[in-house]
């Protein structure tokens, strides 16, 4: 059982290379239980690669990660069981109904047969999908599909959630609802308080729900600090993002 504040995610010198291309270079960080961490960086910075490594989707070239006490190399199955992942592109089968899809995800996530139906019902309720549970996913709006994506990430009740652009393409009301949902999933009132890594380009989203920011640029971690510290004295995340990422562009242009 993990204590509140104890480490749930630990990246230890993660690197990923594709031939000569270095996608992620020696990235290390620790995230405690119940934290919501904003994972920032320009396009192609290595955010998605890092998240895919943490979820066990792909192995790193060097380094390792510990997820809820399980090493992704020595205990890959236990580590995968502890992670819920919402990729940028929703991993949905448009021909299936919402309930059939979530039941399928519960099965492949190894939820016990007896616990499956209650787990699906709980995910449907938490994500506000009860009314559309019998609808075919292909007939749902973008907002509801996003909710189905979140529901598949939490259906097996994982202690760690990795969310890649969870509000991409949503209207302002849907964005508000999804943000509230993410905040609820980590609220201390919830019986199973989750740790969340949230990757997004929408900086106000990070300011609204995250407690800490990790910024990655060109595969390297450049910032890792509490949001409060970064926005002290009225500074904005936008300024920080611009400062940490645009000088590289200027250097590139010069060279």
């Amino acid at each position: 059982m993990l204590r509140r504040g104890s480490r749930v995610i630990e990246a230890r010198g993660i690197s990923k290379r594709y031939g000569d291309l270095v996608a992620v270079a020696d990235v290390s960080f620790k995230i405690g239980k119940g934290e919501i961490v904003g994972f920032l960086g320009p396009n192609g910075a290595g955010k998605t690669t890092t998240m895919r490594i943490l979820t066990g989707f792909m192995p790193p070239t060097d380094g390792t990660a510990i997820i809820a006490g399980h090493d992704i190399f020595s205990e890959p199955l236990a580590a995968r069981r502890c992670v819920g992942y919402l990729p940028e592109q929703l991993p949905l089968y448009l021909e299936m109904t919402v309930t059939a899809y979530l039941t399928y995800v519960a099965k492949i996530k190894d939820v016990a047969r007896r616990a499956r139906a209650p787990a699906v019902d709980r995910a449907l309720e938490r994500c506000g999908l009860t009314e559309v549970r019998s609808r075919v996913i292909g007939n749902l709006s973008r907002g509801f599909r996003q909710r189905v994506g979140l529901a598949q990430a939490i259906v097996h009740d994982p202690p760690v959630l990795v969310l890649d652009e969870p509000t991409l393409g949503l209207d302002p009301l849907q964005v508000r609802d999804i943000r509230q949902l993410i905040a609820d999933l980590t609220s201390p009132q919830d019986g199973n308080q989750r740790t969340v890594i949230l990757s997004t380009h929408i900086l106000p989203e990070v300011e609204a729900i995250c407690q800490r920011v990790i910024l990655i640029n060109e595969g390297r971690k450049t910032v890792d600090a509490p949001l409060e510290e970064l926005t002290r004295d009225g500074r904005s995340l936008e300024e920080l993002f611009a400062r940490e990422t645009t000088h590289d562009v200027a250097e590139e242009v010069e060279s």
Partner: peptide, 8 residues
Amino acid sequence: SGIALAPA
């Protein structure tokens, strides 16, 4: 990504 993350 869904099937790749199955704990099996």
